[in-house]
Design a protein around this nucleic acid. Structure first.
Lengths: 333, 333
DNA sequence: TCAAAAAATGGTAACGTTTGCATTTTTTTT
DNA sequence: AAAAAAAATGCAAACGTTACCATTTTTTGA
């Protein structure tokens, strides 16, 4: 920059202003600087700038399981708002490895990003975050709480009510022998969905068969394993509630392998309404989350946080919707 | 840091060393500093450090279409090597918007990351990159060339040969009326696959029906549209070669909607062998790319580049494999 | 025990910007 | 045309760290 200034015959200050507030330099000067910049192929060192200003214009989205198509939709919402507010979005896959946690914690603590959105990630940080004197701007999407950082603002649907709605749909079709495939152990998200399932069953006066409640790790493979286990049990269920669509895909595969047909022999209920739900054979009945909206609200919330505004409403609940397709049918006989 | 140094009764240099090369400070001093750091909840400002050292330890993967499950697999490979070499991986969705291109170009040009992996992204940079005096370390995975930056090192499979193999498989089953769903217009990747298709047809002495060659944008929706178009044409094909698995999913949905059955009425061939291929009904015959391997090699290559090594072999071809499942069957009657 | 070698620590100048304040130039007003 | 106001520009001090070199302390060897 000094070099540019010299060649253009102005001061570094002016060159700096040329980049940050072009209107404040006279148009004659501006074009002179522009010319030199062009010619020298000069780009200002953003690290130095970030260092000086203390902000980067970068927001990191920490995702656990970047492959989940539901998160892809949330990301779309985030990206839309990001370009509106001219933030740059970078995605980081959450890593349970302690070293990786340290690394990420250090990353935000040292202000390498202006803020963080946690997308279904439970606790990607090390303890040093809690011990820190200031907590950086963080917003949680979809997952409820980070242990040790309970008061962070969050955006999500009412998973309990949605889990209940999903189950009720199956009950209304006459199903009583219903299985439920949940998520990982520690996930609050899927535990709430499962609790919705239990509540709905209870209200219907039915007992939950614990052998039919299996954890599924939110992946296709998890769904497969859980389904296999459930199908092996005596007295097969007539419906399975999968607490996300990926696991429903796994269930489809296992059910086909077992020679059963959906929905004739067994009804399948999903959760998330990913882009795959519609094209599965048969199309999947599921709970639709307003994924993009979650992303949008999440980023807006984060920006208020970054600007130092007080968040009056730390938990924002958006509405879900039951989408009935062909994977669920009335109980036969 | 100055504050820590004062409280601990040492110099800032020592505190700096405590963080970067703990072995070089006496254990007594080390524990003294550690104590103060702990107590004050101090974390070194990484921006300042990056600024000073000129490197960040961050590698950005630029992906076009982050939702594609194939890329997820490549990412897995990248992440594995990254933790081995202790790099931090951040993902950036490629954006065709000119402002976004500028932003990204500026990002790398100003050394905010140590290197870039381009994952199926065609040209996410603005022209200022080409005009720059130094090109930063960039490696291309899966896509062949970035216009204007022709000599960048790349890792991918032989898409021409793989497209040919896929088509040959269909030919061997007796199919002759074969459709082909390609990718976006400018994509070299899918054009090569399509060319493989054409070559195989030519070698078999068959003429390609141009009405059955449709672009598909590599998405489920693109696959749907293309399939719909093809099915509407007179004289239905007996097989469709989709140049990625996502589009095959779209094809499945449209074929089901048309009341046809796979593979009885029509065979479907995919490309990528994503995790969905196996659980589709019926399971999809496809070309397997060694996705994780591509990611691993890509990152290794990038690291050599970062370390300033000369790349002797700028194009690394890894091997593909035909995976036969149930979506393709011999031509009936 | 002393000299020499090695290890540990400290002082200070960068790194490339931005920013507050001072100064100069231009424009406006009377 | 001069004075006042406004707009442009420049100067120099930060920002928090690291790296070179110098200095002090500790260890080693005779």
């Amino acid at each position: 920059m000094k070099e540019v200034a010299e060649v253009a015959g102005v001061s570094v200050t002016t060159v700096s202003r040329y980049f940050n507030d072009p209107d404040s330099v006279k148009s004659a000067t501006r074009s002179k600087v522009a010319e030199v910049v062009q010619e020298m192929g000069f780009a200002p060192n953003r690290i130095a700038r970030n260092f000086r200003t203390g902000s980067t214009g970068i927001i990191v989205v920490v995702v656990s399981g970047i492959g989940d198509p539901f998160f892809t939709d949330v990301m779309e919402g985030i990206n839309r708002v990001a370009s509106e507010l001219s933030y740059m979005i970078l995605i980081k896959e959450a890593d349970a490895h302690p070293v990786a946690k340290d690394e990420l914690t250090n990353f935000i603590l040292s202000k390498q990003s202006d803020g963080i959105i946690l997308l279904g990630a439970r606790s990607p940080f090390s303890d040093s975050l809690k011990n820190s004197r200031v907590i950086p701007p963080i917003v949680i999407c979809c997952e409820a709480v980070v242990p040790g950082l309970e008061s962070l603002p969050a955006v999500r649907i009412d998973n309990l009510a949605a889990g209940k709605d999903a189950t009720k749909h199956l009950l209304q079709l006459g199903h009583q022998k219903i299985a439920c495939i949940g998520g990982q152990e520690g996930s609050i998200l899927t535990r709430e969905r499962e609790m919705g399932f239990r509540e709905a069953m209870k209200e219907a006066g039915l007992k939950v068969n614990e052998a039919w409640v299996a954890p599924g790790s939110l992946s296709i493979e998890g769904g497969r394993k859980a389904t296999r286990r459930i199908l092996k049990m005596g007295g097969k269920p007539t419906a399975i509630f999968c607490t996300n669509d990926e696991m429903a895909l796994g269930a489809y595969a296992e059910i086909a392998a077992a020679g059963l047909r959906i929905p004739d022999d067994i009804s399948i209920m999903g959760y998330d309404n990913t882009r795959y739900a519609e094209v599965m054979t048969p199309p999947l009945t599921t709970i639709a989350q307003p994924a993009q909206e979650i992303g949008e609200h999440g980023l807006y919330l984060l920006c208020s946080l970054i600007q130092g505004q007080q968040i009056t409403n730390p938990l924002e609940i958006v509405s879900h919707k039951l989408v009935v397709r062909d994977s669920t049918a009335p109980l036969r006989g």
